[in-house]
Design a protein around this nucleic acid. Structure first.
Lengths: 206, 206
DNA sequence: TTTCCAATGTGATCATTATCACTGACCAGG
DNA sequence: CCTGGTCAGTGATAATGATCACATTGGAAA
């Protein structure tokens, strides 16, 4: 997909500007794109693949916050880059992923010169903030069964595939739970005919 | 406190601009400043008092996200105002509170004309995003005892008073827990000489 | 085919927190 | 100085999820 197709709201001039100064970078599945505590000097626009964004505690436990998909930007990288601050999160490529890195120097310039960039930045903040709020909702108000359902639905939604290719352990890690709990809940959902369990794959039926 | 004292980073011209066009509004303790689902047409700068920001689920349960104190702005109001969208949170005055409402029309203008406003907005996003992340940390990784400790420390920190004038029920509501659990945990902390319990008041010793 | 390992299934038990039921303590207004 | 109502203390029990221990299964590599 071209930049123009991924970011149709951008003016042609803006596309040219970021094409000229942005640096394309690719990541393989599992590769770390941003590490907790790392200093950020560029904003990241996702072109291909997808990125999982995690919060990590000091014992190394992880907790999935959200995904970033093509046509989206990483709000954390924007904020950190603009303030030359360390990131508080970890970002990992889930698939083969291609991103465009926009140096912070260019950011200020784009903000001033391109209304569509400015609106894009605002919209990115807004949607990430909302997603973060819904994460809080989930862990504050919901039990694991509902959180698991939310997780699976989001996966299907994001990937467009009904086959969820994850082990129970991976799901448990993302939800900061344990494999046994996830296995049992999945089994219950299978009995309710909402999905079918396979090895390393869950078939979502809805 | 004057605007100049509360927002020392603002240029004099900027101060004049927001003084001229901003509308001051006062709220009494417990008064709702922003309701879930409400449309936002202004950004809010806090001048006096303090605001509690909650997330609410559809059963009416509440969960305290953070406080906004004098010299700070409400990031949600910024984002919502700029996008003419409904808010996803609830804001309540805790004390007698005075705020300055900046109409959204002025926002764009200030962004373009005043570098210090632009930086202030970015900084507001960043700090709220970080606070939201630390909320996620707390509920994802910590038990109630640690969350209670964090809550009490933040209260002491923010208010500058060692006497926490809250009932156990209020604390339980903010943490989406139950009174009995909070009472028992507080009792335990009292036995550890970290605080003293009184009626409607907790004396913090540290 | 056999073997081995990761993925999954399952019962038992523990830890944390929620909920229920009730008691006592404090305090403001009559 | 009563007294009703809010606030706090406490035991019992339930619900949820974490953890442990071990069995089973499926598929890839030897």
């Amino acid at each position: 997909m071209t930049l123009k197709e991924l970011f149709p709201q951008f003016e042609t001039e803006l596309i040219l500007a970021i094409e000229k100064e942005g640096v394309t970078k690719t990541f393989t599945p599992g590769e770390v794109i941003m590490r907790t505590g790392q200093f950020i000097k560029s904003t990241i626009l996702v072109l291909k693949g997808n990125i999982k964004v995690y919060r990590q505690n000091n014992e190394g436990e992880e907790f999935l916050i959200y995904y970033i998909t093509p046509g989206q930007a990483c709000a954390v990288s924007m904020i950190c880059a603009m303030q030359a601050q360390a990131s508080e999160i970890m970002a990992i490529a889930e698939e083969d992923t291609e991103v465009l890195m926009i140096p912070v120097r260019l950011m200020d310039e784009l903000m001033v010169n391109y209304k569509s960039w400015y609106h894009f930045v605002i919209k990115t903040y807004r949607s990430r903030f909302d997603e973060l709020l819904s994460v809080v909702d989930n862990i504050a108000f919901r039990n694991m069964d509902e959180r698991l359902e939310f997780y699976l639905k989001r996966y299907v939604d994001k990937s467009g595939k009904k086959n969820i290719e994850l082990s129970h352990q991976q799901i448990a890690d993302d939800l900061n739970s344990s494999r046994e709990v996830i296995s049992r809940l999945l089994k219950k959902m299978e009995q309710q005919k909402r999905l079918t369990l396979h090895r390393n794959m869950i078939e979502w039926k809805e």
